[in-house]
């Protein structure tokens, strides 16, 4: 099958969670899944670096988690459904994570959503060629 990943390149600001991303991020996402258990959330909060050492992640991935750099985690194979468990462990909502990923204060992000969300114009297609 030709160009599955390429086909998504035209969509602005979006990393589609395909085979490339999933292979990169397998252990990062496994770590996130461990946070579904309260004991693991407590262990992670008690010593983040040591907890992250339990998973065979790259050092870059560990640092992105420690920095709570969600765009970096996504670039390194994180899937938002799983990454959100880090945010929840920190006590943050999806909207807070979205404000971090889009680089705007949370109240500004929330106001954008209340006003109808991120506009279609300029956000569908990078080339403008999509039908």
């Amino acid at each position: 099958m030709k160009g599955y990943n390429e086909a998504f390149q035209d969509i602005p600001g979006t990393v589609v969670f395909d085979a490339t991303q999933s292979r990169l991020g397998y252990h990062l996402n496994q770590f996130c899944m461990s946070l579904m258990k309260a004991d693991n959330r407590a262990a992670f909060k008690a010593g983040e670096r040591a907890y992250l050492e339990r998973w065979p992640m790259t050092e870059e991935q560990r640092q992105a988690v420690l920095d709570r750099d969600y765009n970096r985690m996504i670039a390194l194979g994180g899937n938002i459904y799983f990454l959100a468990k880090i945010g929840a462990t920190d006590g943050f909502s999806f909207q807070n994570l979205a404000s971090k990923m889009t680089g705007v204060p949370e109240d500004e992000y929330k106001a954008m959503m209340v006003a109808g969300g991120r506009p279609i114009e300029g956000n569908r297609s990078k080339t403008g060629k999509a039908k």
């Binding site: 979006t14 938002i80 889009t102 991120r118 279609i120």
Partner: peptide, 16 residues
């Protein structure tokens, strides 16, 4: 219905 949770396009909504 329409939503995007991740990346710089987070918050995308397409009401039409």
């Amino acid at each position: 219905l329409s939503h995007q949770l991740d990346g710089q396009r987070a918050g995308f909504i397409n009401k039409p």
